[in-house]
């Protein structure tokens, strides 16, 4: 249906269109383009690698995984190499050897840079400064059937200091606060009248609580310890051509390693103060991609110590429940 437009409306549309065109010309989207491309490549690699160490148990699940892998994971086919027949075998071997050496050297340097950057990052985040991040979890539409609200899209404001955190999460219509206090206990507050402390080891927590914490509140020290332990690291050139952005570190699971909830990570580290400016986590569960979590730095400051304690988020007379979990066999 076409709408009759007055000359004033047409004039306004022209004004806005010109304005938008000028804005488009000013904006440099190359950093974002690089991020989207790297994401695609990484996603494809993750889906491919997930299929190898953890083959699905049922035939149906296997069929789904194979189907998923096809459109995105097909590796870019290298152009067919036509080698002249006269090329001596020794020269070919030397070329291959040289290429391999160069590749190892480049990749070794990138790995070393990344490891150093993450050590600096960890050390900076162990300090006493409070940092606030916006955290967004977007489930993979292929695997979220919308039946479990806890696994649906969520967004949070996360405050961290060292390994402590507290986060205000909105998951669908659910509003929760979660945190980890000075003594290491995780807590969850569903209303000012109801708070629960979890005294169990992280591995013993119920799967939903563990996933909720992993998706909404990964602190940098904990992340770096896990990333350094089980992931291959690669430092990439800064995505921002202006040089404003710092180092970009890609982390992917080492071959044969399995992490219960994270399969890969992208970290953007401020080159000036070595703090985390952006983090993207690719979540996985039961060998299937579950979605991505994006942490974006908002501000730093000083919060009152008590903000990390459950008590300060409850009414004065509200009781605190203590919960201890015995892990089910399959999670051990």
């Amino acid at each position: 249906m076409s709408e009759p437009e007055s000359p004033l409306d047409q004039s306004l549309d022209r004004l806005l269109a010109d304005h938008r065109e000028r804005a488009e010309q000013r904006i440099d989207a190359s950093a974002l383009l690089q991020r989207v491309r790297q994401s695609r490549e990484h996603e494809a690699a993750i889906v491919a690698s997930i299929r190898l160490p953890q083959p699905p148990s049922s035939g149906a699940a296997q069929a789904e995984t194979v189907h998923l892998a096809q459109p995105n994971t097909a590796p870019r086919r290298a152009p067919q190499a036509f080698l002249p027949r006269w090329l001596p075998g020794a020269a070919l071997a030397a070329a291959v050897l040289l290429a391999a050496l160069l590749a190892v050297r480049t990749s070794g340097t990138a790995t070393a840079n990344a490891s150093l950057a993450l050590r600096d990052l960890r050390s900076v985040h162990l300090g006493q400064l409070d940092r606030c991040y916006r955290v967004q979890y977007t489930p993979d539409p292929r695997y979220w059937d919308e039946s479990n609200q806890l696994e649906g899209p969520s967004h949070s404001l996360l405050w961290t200091r060292g390994d402590r955190f507290w986060s205000e999460c909105t998951i669908g219509e659910l509003q929760l606060r979660i945190g980890r206090q000075r003594d290491g206990a995780l807590w969850l507050r569903s209303s000012p009248q109801r708070g629960v402390e979890f005294r169990s080891a992280p591995a013993d927590l119920p799967q939903e609580v563990a996933l909720l914490c992993a998706a909404n509140s990964l602190t940098v020290p904990r992340l770096v310890e896990e990333v350094l332990a089980d992931f291959d690291l690669r430092a990439a050139a800064p995505a921002d051509q202006s040089g404003a952005a710092g180092l970009v570190v890609w982390a992917a699971l080492k071959p044969g390693r399995v992490h219960p909830v994270v399969s890969a990570a992208l970290l953007e580290i401020d080159s000036a103060d070595h703090s985390l400016t952006r983090l993207v986590l690719w979540m996985v569960r039961n060998g299937q991609p579950r979605g991505t979590v994006t942490y974006t730095f908002l501000e730093s400051g000083r919060l009152d110590e008590s903000q990390y304690e459950l008590r300060s988020h409850l009414d004065e007379d509200a009781p605190i429940e203590q919960q201890q979990f015995t892990p089910p066999e399959q999670l051990r």
Partner: peptide
């Protein structure tokens, strides 16, 4: 924008 591309590209098939 990154998120929107990711979601669409995940369903590129």
């Amino acid at each position: 924008v990154h998120d929107c591309y990711s979601r669409l590209l995940a369903r590129a098939d």
